[in-house]
Each structure stands twice: as C-alpha cells, then as structure tokens.
Design a protein around this nucleic acid. Structure first.
Length: 318
DNA sequence: GCCACCGGTGGC
DNA sequence: GCCACCGGTGGC
C-alpha cells in the first residue's frame, strides 16, 4: 500500500500509466464537474482548484427548490461517471447513470475493463488514452461497489453536499409515485404501505444508502468531540456553539494530516493491490471484506436494521 | 405548508 | 471515525 498523500490533493494523481496508478485497481469513481450546465466533462471546472474554505463562496444557486437550515450551500449534481479499467488503470467515462449503475452492481465479480466500453465506443482499447485525468479541477469521490440497481421505475439519487458540511452526500430513492425516501426505515415503511411493490418483487436488498467517499481531504467537516468533560458532562452543551460571528469553518477540526484515510477505498475497498480493507477498530459484519456480496442481500425477506430507532426486535418482515 | 438541505446524535 | 437515521429550518 502506498503512503497517503498528506497534501489536500487527491491521492490518485499523476494521471496514468507509468507512475503506478495507485492501489486502486478498479475503483469506481464518481467525479463531479461541480456545476450544473456542466453536461460535458471536459474542463468545466468552475470550481476553484485550490480548496480555500475561508474564502469559499457558494456559486450562484440555480434554484432547485427549498433551502436548508443555516448557510446555503450548493449541491453540485454529479455530472459524469467514470470507472477505472482493471487492466490498464485508465479512466473511462460511462455514458449514462444507468450504465454506470449496471457496471457498479457487479463490479467485484465482473471488474471493468476497456473492452466493456466497446459497447458504446467501438474503437476503444487499453491503448486508448485515458478519458479523464484526475486533477484538482473536479471533485472526485470513490463510490461503493456492488450496489444494486434500483428496482424498475425507481431512481437512486445522489446529492453531493457542499464543502464543510457534516456529511459528503445524501442518497434518496424516488419511488414511482415520486415519493422521496431517505433511509432504509422509510423504504421499509413505504413498501409496507404499498404492498403492490412487494408483489412486484421489490425488496430491501435492492436499496443501499451508502455514499461515496470524497478524495479531497477535509471536504467534510469533522465532528466535534463528544462529552469532553471527565465526568461525562459537557457543560450542558451537546457541542460547541457556533456563533454567528464565527466562520462556519473556524471551529472545524484542526489540520490533521493523519485524517487522510480518505485516500483509500472505502470500507468495501476494492483495491486489488492490497487486498486488505482499511483497518477498522472492529470488524463489522457488513464491512467484512471477505464476503463480497451486497450487504442486506443474504435474506431478502428479513432485514435486520442496526441502530436505535427500530422496532423492538429490530427486525422488519417484508 | 412543503420539502430540500443540513446538522447532530447514538451506536459501533 | 464511520454509518444510519431523522429533526429542524428557511426558502419557496
């Protein structure tokens, strides 16, 4: 495993070939040209190449509906998708989101290679120059592998949050009725209320709310420490107060080069060079690298949900 | 009033 | 630190 890059640059740099393209064999990467009308890949890059949180200003918002609480930040839409060839490590743009989801669904079992791109680009092969260089002009994020395609008629929507937010992105599923669902619990509830989908064969295993991981270090604001007092109290505060005068980022976590595990593939890391997942304090069943099937898929009819806000037995029947 | 977006929390 | 979930809120 190569050392992580302490700078804020993406780790997979130096474009292509020679310079060992890094540990990630066939990572899927979403990249985001950071703004609308960026239908087209090339160098849209409205974004400042240098992340500068202090002076960062949201680009003009081309209104997409309601606002959020607090400071408004732009949510760039993912404009394009790219997948790395497992043979030559070059990036290949995937023409549609649907195609991308199709590839992603079985990426572990069926690694992507340039050959597969012949389907939409007949003349392509591993000798063809890379479609896109990894540089600072775009926001790069490593997606999770083996996410089911949404059921027919449903859409999986990924919304990237602005820099400095507490999370990188949100996943929503849009039901055929237009209803937006934002968690497994909500999907569960919705399916129970609309048994027709269950009759059609829709199961929870077809949903995943996993989000990609940004390569840019510190894109996501780090969470303040909990319960700093020895006695467990927190001076009555759940977190540091963010005053109006303070920059939203002024109390962000201090610079910390050690916080860079962003450069690795996610918990499901599909880095063929290492074959090892990032070290975790505790191996969680669903994050176990040794079995590569989709989490939740083992028993499509019974889905055990972790977490506090659950039915008493923690098990939903579908 | 709706809902898109963001923050925060508990658990691991 | 990451994940899953969901409440709050402000713009529309």
């Amino acid at each position: 495993m190569q050392e992580e890059n302490p700078s804020s640059n993406p780790v997979i740099l130096s474009s292509d070939d020679e310079e060992e393209p890094i540990k990630n064999d066939y990572q899927i990467v979403l990249y985001d040209p950071t703004k609308a009308n960026a239908n087209n890949n090339l160098a849209m890059a409205v974004a400042e190449p240098e992340p500068d949180p202090i002076h960062w200003k949201p680009p003009l918002m081309q209104n997409s509906g309601g606002g959020g609480g607090g400071a408004q930040r732009v949510l760039p839409a993912v404009g394009s998708f790219t997948v790395q060839c497992a043979m030559c490590f070059k990036w290949r743009l995937i023409p549609t989101k649907e195609k991308y989801e199709e590839i992603r669904e079985h990426i572990l079992q069926q690694p992507f290679t340039c050959d597969l791109a012949k389907e939409w680009r007949g003349d392509i092969c591993c000798d063809t120059p890379t479609d896109i260089e990894q540089d600072n002009s775009r926001l790069w994020a490593i997606d999770k592998p083996n996410i089911s395609q949404p059921p027919p008629g449903w859409e999986r929507e990924l919304r990237i949050r602005g820099e400095g937010c507490s999370k990188f992105a949100d996943v929503y599923y849009i039901a055929p009725t237009g209803k937006r669902l934002r968690s497994m619990v909500e999907v569960q509830r919705y399916l129970l209320e609309h048994p027709e989908y269950i009759m059609q064969g829709v199961t929870l295993s077809q949903f995943s709310f996993q989000i990609p991981k940004p390569l840019q270090e510190n894109y996501v604001r780090k969470r303040a420490a909990r319960s700093p007092m020895p006695d467990g109290s927190n001076f009555g505060m759940a977190r540091p107060l963010q005053t109006i005068a303070a920059s939203p980022l002024s109390w962000a976590a201090p610079d910390d080069a050690s916080a860079l595990q962003i450069s690795r593939p996610g918990p499901y890391g599909f880095s063929a060079n290492t074959g090892t997942p990032p070290a975790r304090k505790k191996a969680r069943p669903s994050a176990n690298h040794t079995h590569s099937s989709i989490p939740l898929q083992h028993n499509p009819h019974k889905f055990k949900i972790k977490g506090p806000r659950l039915p008493p037995n923690g098990v939903y029947d579908l």
